[in-house]
Design a protein around this nucleic acid. Structure first.
Length: 594
RNA sequence: GCGCCCUUAGCUCAGUUGGAUAGAGCAACAGCCUUCUAAGCUGUGGGUCGGUGGUUCGAAUCCACCAGGGCGCGCCA
């Protein structure tokens, strides 16, 4: 008995097909699929084996299918196999085979569904990587949840996963942060400057005017008094204060971000610092390496088509030959002042990941970075050589927040944007995480606050949580009646009495969980777990409601201890799979609804 | 102008990687509460999968072109 019923049946199908077509090429055998049927009238599973083998065997699909149906129909585990449509073979499984999944689930617990397709390959999942210039807002939230769930999913599928966050603490925005924090410092020590007078003294003008930097200024004032200002409490020479102000601001911003991540339940194995890499000389070393490979040259880029930037002028720059790896244009590595671009540092960072052993890198980015994908992939191809380490990018489209049917406006200026913390306080962690996974990440999403906290079927969070709570409620009631609920005890229960259609539908769904994990991991689409759980919850609720019309279908049947134990096994297994799925999503299962 | 993403029921969205008669929730319509079990349940109606061609046994899915929406396009990160 295999844990994955689909894999088990597929093995039977491939064996039978090999008998019928002895010289079947392996690449054809690899295309054989065993899938769940859409329509239960078509049986439990269907295979495309005859269709994919037809061409290689030079025989009609129907002919191979008929032979296949005959062989498969003779198996103990198959009650009926029939040729259908253009050459599918539909399999009706022995109910015993389906029921036998329950003891497997109960014994495996939450590890049921763990897959091996990852082969312990090292995967580095990088997500969030919000600039440490302010609190996390809702735009970061989706990437955080998607990245975290994807990493969990890949781990469950058998990959060796590292969750990583890159702190962008090297660029010009950190300089801007320091100047903004310095303003709050001047305020804290009672400067007579106005904000606009100050801003005029800041190179490029002051950014980051949100109130969240006030505590930074207060701490600087508390620790350093007026030492960082002129005697008249004006702007002192940056040499005097800049490094300390920058460090203090960075430290406090990162502490806030880590708190936010913690509230969201998002965890990392590693925080990498861009500045540390730069100080180590990683960027220069990477540029040297690429130069040695003949991939760096100095040249002038064509101006972009369409509307020109106002200050466009042709300029010679150090360029990376991204076009050699499929990108549209070669990409600059140095700014005109000779400093490195962010792209250059990012190449060095990905080289660092490869050096640390990453075989697959997955970056979760916002959609506004979509134009950056092909150049980064070009760079990793250049660094890793064809075939080895490679980069996948998951783009998360923007999230619009709705409340009371109205769009909640977000402006990053003046701190009017919704922070992640605001959202968590209003909706709660579990609802935020689940809701963020109810769309595929490359589709735009409307986050409806009212719906996320509604207690109706429209709200998938509630619906799935409620299913779990109902299972637990039945198990609690059984426990109070003195029934033995130990997994091993339930696993040994006689299960023949589980023969109602709604019960078998639920078991089929449970049996599909391992395959669902594999496919979601393969596609790098954690949202599929949310949809699976929603369907599973629906099956459980349907069965529950059947008990309203037909009391013999209720879970606890005082006069029938064997039937009760069988149903408790089903309920316990259902709760187990829901927990297992919620664990991937990072959502807490609830024991009861309040 | 170019590149990437999106377009599926009145609305919000799935769609098992190319499979059978395209699914769910909401809304609409028709039934159902002295319940371990109505913070609902059961059923019905509703579709040219944005459009046009192509690839093949077979297309919502792959390719080309077109239309609409979003994002991006040298010295921001």
């Amino acid at each position: 008995m295999q844990e994955n019923l689909f894999a088990e049946l597929r093995a039977h199908v491939v064996a039978a097909l090999t008998d019928i077509v002895p010289d079947l090429p392996p690449e054809i055998a690899a295309r054989v699929e065993v899938t769940a049927t859409k329509d239960e009238a078509h049986g439990d599973m269907a295979t495309n084996a005859a269709l994919v083998a037809s061409k290689a065997a030079r025989r009609k699909p129907q002919e191979i299918g008929a032979a296949l149906a005959e062989k498969l129909g003779a198996l103990d585990v198959v009650t009926k196999a029939e040729l259908a449509g253009p050459g599918f073979v539909n399999l009706h499984l022995a109910p015993d085979l389906l029921r036998a999944q329950l003891p497997v689930i109960l014994r495996r617990g939450e590890t049921y569904g763990d897959a091996t397709i990852g082969g312990r390959v090292n995967v580095n999942v990088e997500y969030v990587s919000a600039n440490p210039t302010g609190p996390m807002h809702i735009g970061h939230c989706r990437g955080a949840v998607v990245g975290d769930a994807l990493a969990n999913l890949l781990a469950k599928a058998g990959f060796a996963v590292t969750k990583e966050y890159l702190i962008n603490d090297a660029g010009g925005q950190v300089t801007a942060l320091a100047w903004a924090a310095y303003w709050r410092y001047l305020e804290a020590i009672g400067t007579t400057l106005t904000e606009e007078e100050y801003s005029a003294e800041v190179p490029g003008g002051m950014q980051y005017r949100g109130e969240y930097l006030i505590p930074v200024g207060q701490r600087l004032a508390a620790e350093h008094g007026t030492a960082f200002a002129t005697e008249s409490r004006g702007v002192a020479a940056p040499e005097l204060w800049f490094d300390i102000v920058r460090e203090t601001a960075l430290e406090m911003m990162m502490a806030g971000i880590r708190e936010d991540l913690d509230l969201l339940g998002v965890t990392f194995d590693r925080f990498s610092s861009e500045r540390e890499l730069v100080l180590k000389g990683a960027t220069d070393a990477t540029i040297e390496k690429l130069t040695a490979m003949g991939l760096i040259y100095n040249g002038v880029l064509e101006p972009p088509k369409g509307k020109l930037p106002d200050d466009w002028e042709p300029r010679e720059q150090m360029l990376f030959r991204a076009t050699r790896f499929g990108d549209d244009v070669d990409r600059p590595l140095r700014k005109s002042d000779g400093s490195n671009t962010y792209f250059a540092n990012d190449i060095a960072y990905h080289a660092d990941k490869i050096a640390r052993g990453a075989e697959i890198m997955i970056d979760v980015w916002g959609a506004d970075h979509g134009g950056y994908v092909s150049r980064m992939q070009a760079a990793t191809k250049a660094l890793a050589g064809e075939g080895r380490a490679h980069l996948d990018v998951v783009l998360c489209q923007i999230v619009k927040v709705l409340k009371g049917g109205e769009l909640v406006r977000m402006s990053k200026r003046a701190g009017t944007f919704i922070t992640l913390r605001d959202l968590l306080e209003e909706v709660g962690r579990d609802a935020v995480r689940f809701t963020m996974l109810t769309r595929k990440s490359d589709a735009q999403m409307d986050f409806d606050i009212d719906q996320a906290i509604a207690q109706t079927r429209e709200n998938p969070v509630f619906y799935v949580q409620y299913a779990h709570a109902r299972c637990r409620s039945v198990l609690r009631a059984a426990h109070e009646q003195g029934l033995d609920l130990a997994p091993e005890s339930l696993a040994n229960a006689p299960l023949d009495s589980l023969d109602n259609a709604a019960e078998l539908t639920l078991i089929r769904r449970l049996a599909a969980w391992p395959r669902q994990v594999e496919q979601a991991a393969f596609a790098r689409e954690p949202h599929r777990i949310a949809f699976f759980l929603y369907d599973l919850a629906g099956d459980l609720h349907t069965l529950w409601n059947r008990g309203r019309d037909d009391a013999t279908l209720r879970f606890l049947q005082p006069d029938q201890p064997d039937a009760t134990r069988a149903r408790l096994a089903l309920v316990a297994a259902t709760a187990m799979v829901i927990r297992s799925g919620l664990a991937v999503m990072g959502v807490t299962p609830v024991e009861e609804m309040r």
